[in-house]
Design a protein around this nucleic acid. Sequence first.
DNA 1: AACTATACGGAGACGACCTCCGGTTCTACA
DNA 2: TGTAGAACCGGAGGTCGTCTCCGTATAGTT
Lengths: 198, 198
Amino acid sequence: MRADAQRNYDRLLLEAKQAFIVHGTEVPLEDIARHAGVGVGTLYRHFPDRYALMNAVFVQEVEQITAQAEELVTAEDPTVALTSWLRAVAVHSTMYRGLSAAIMEASDSKMPACKTLLREAGGTLLRRAQEAGEVKSDLRIADLLKLTHAIVLAAEKTPDDRELFTRLMALAIDGMRVRPGGAAHGTPDPAAAAGATA
Amino acid sequence: MRADAQRNYDRLLLEAKQAFIVHGTEVPLEDIARHAGVGVGTLYRHFPDRYALMNAVFVQEVEQITAQAEELVTAEDPTVALTSWLRAVAVHSTMYRGLSAAIMEASDSKMPACKTLLREAGGTLLRRAQEAGEVKSDLRIADLLKLTHAIVLAAEKTPDDRELFTRLMALAIDGMRVRPGGAAHGTPDPAAAAGATA
DNA sequence: AACTATACGGAGACGACCTCCGGTTCTACA
DNA sequence: TGTAGAACCGGAGGTCGTCTCCGTATAGTT
């Protein structure tokens, strides 16, 4: 990689991160290029599409989150460890308006680094909680991350209700746990309560 | 309203509904206008933006859903009634790719008819379930609808996993209920499990 | 039939995405 | 140090979708 190319690459990454924080991840790519002092052609050469750029920006960030997961792996209560970590993921996503939407939107082949790193980190935490019999065994880490991002997205679109995120996250966390008293309620789709057909 | 205007209005509504079903709600508005045999100007005069058009299309649909809510209000188990209804809402949203995203995206002033009708219908069901002491008392109907749409959205973006919707919906439903044995787990943010700081 | 308020339609401005290729710059090698 | 050429740059311009504007057409009225 030539020196000027490397310089431009780094500069773009830096400006992209700033722009994502300030204007959200839907900021026009041309703006990023301009602020980085390069043409759009250069941006698109280094990052074929918006997702490639986001992926590059966020792998750096994700490393902090995986580090947290590693600490939490030794925590006493595996369920608390898992849920704390999911909250941390949510908090991080909230820093970048639009990030949750992008992660949900992107097919699995997009933003691969971000996604796999998060899944590996969370997978361990989830497994521990499941082995302790505290979290439903049919849940996958991908599910929980999707739900977390969905909740962040919902909260993002409701800026006038600051507590929404808290309520929904509490709901989700309670829903992950196995029900202590008897069978789950949500699982076997009741389909008909009384005379309700469809 | 002049007769030709009424004709065009009706035609646009019809074609929009078809297009939303077939191509999703992000279909170009020009396509809808063309299929309706009118110019874009006419479309935009009747429906100032995409949300106005969607609102007009979906108020009709929402009436079916409110009808279901009225039936379910007399059901024996108020919690089953509520959850069955939410599933029905989800199923309906799934018919129109992009609808859930739009409902979440839209500020409360957009698609007002759809939103208020759904909230009124579901509000009654929620209140009954809460009065029976089966559903958390701090939840609002807007929360549950947002979460439902968020789950539909997540499932929509994961077309290769047909069961995702089922698992997440079950999770959400379990999470709505009050925990039988003691305090909730999700509510009082534990914040630190072991040595986990930021 | 003539008149006017109402409605139509599509050209075109705008903004964002992305591609392409002539021109420039770096670097390896003499 | 000079130079050949590979690597890279940049932005003009094509494409697509949204939305506006206004000259033209028409329904409804007298």
